[in-house]
Simulated assay, not measured.
Amino acid sequence: MRAIWKGALTFGLVNVPVKVYSATEDHDVPLHQVHAADGGRIRYQRICELDGEVVPYAEIDRAFDDGERTVVLTKDDFASLPSERSREIDVVEFVPTEQIDLLTLDRAYYLEPDSSSPKAYVLLRRTLEATDRTAIVRFSLRQKTRLAALRVRGDVLVLQTLLWADEVREAAFPSLDEEVRISAKELELSASLVESFSGDFDPSEFADEYQQELRALIDAKLADGDAVDTAATFGEPDEDEGGGEVIDLLAALRASVERSRASRSAEETRPDATTEKRKKKA
């Protein structure tokens, strides 16, 4: 695996340098389009609608169109945004793990310690295990500010991006508003059926049969000589720079705890503390 991002995981004054790796990969057989008549590769070109010329990727910017006006955003514009410059994964809060809605979970990434000593990394991992908490974090990746859940998987910290609240649709189905009567016998038989299929989930016991058969079909065509010579070149993303060493972990922890307690104590003594806390959450 190759790191796709480098930065620092921060909570309080504690700084944990990490490398980020994609935790999943697509196992689908890669396919592309060809001309049915002669097998020639079908490729798409980026053509400017104004001059009809093919535009190199390096000369392409992005734009926002509100229907009447277009605002062009250059690479420098995106680079100037604060979130784009950030190389930190900031812990916002630690929440009970059961409060994470599985529907909001998105892409998963592994975090590897990126320092001479993994002590701060291991301490955070053990703390999450001992408290049965999940860290909610914010970070920036590929020109997007992301919300994510930081949790433990085995000996590794896993960062799993979360969908924003407005990205999850409400399930409103009129058919479910109707009152449905379920008899005790129907419920009993349904429970018996569930019990007959009960077992412990082992992902390795399941396979993508479609992809296996597709691969077998391709191998058979190759064996029969039903193929043409091709050449392909694949590039890889450059590694990013970032991260730093933790100078004094114990001192940072103590200072963070003291600062957090002082902040909470000051907030609780304010008469409008509850209102402010709700606004901050929002």
Rank of each mutant, 00 (worst) to 15 (best):
V92S: 08
S86T: 01
S83E: 06
D61G: 05
F139L: 14
E68H: 14
I100H: 02
Q99K: 03
A63V: 10
R69W: 10
R125E: 04
I100Q: 02
K119I: 13
D61V: 14
T70S: 13
L81S: 00
I100A: 01
P96Q: 00
E68V: 15
D76I: 03
R138I: 11
E112A: 15
K144D: 11
A108P: 12
D66E: 05
D77A: 00
T131I: 04
T74R: 06
A130H: 13
D77R: 01
L141V: 10
K75R: 11
R133L: 11
A63S: 14
A63R: 08
R107H: 12
S80F: 01
L73R: 04
T104G: 02
P82C: 00
E88H: 06
T131W: 04
D106C: 06
A130S: 14
I89M: 08
D65I: 05
L128M: 11
T145M: 12
R85T: 05
T127E: 03
Y121E: 06
L111W: 03
E93G: 09
T104V: 08
L105P: 06
R125W: 06
V122R: 13
T131A: 10
A108Q: 07
S86K: 00
Y109A: 09
D66H: 04
L128Y: 09
Y110D: 10
R133C: 07
A108M: 07
T97M: 06
D90H: 13
F64D: 07
E68T: 15
D61L: 08
E68G: 15
F64V: 12
E88K: 06
T131F: 07
A130C: 07
S86I: 01
F139C: 11
T145I: 09
T145F: 03
K144S: 14
R69L: 12
T97R: 11
V137A: 04
R125M: 09
Q143S: 14
T70W: 09
D106M: 10
R62V: 10
E112D: 15
R126C: 07
R87G: 05
D90T: 13
T70N: 10
Y121F: 14
D106Q: 15
F94L: 13
T97C: 03
R142A: 15
V92R: 08
D61Y: 14
R87A: 03
P82V: 00
D76Y: 04
E93V: 09
F78S: 00
P96T: 02
D106E: 15
V71G: 05
S116D: 12
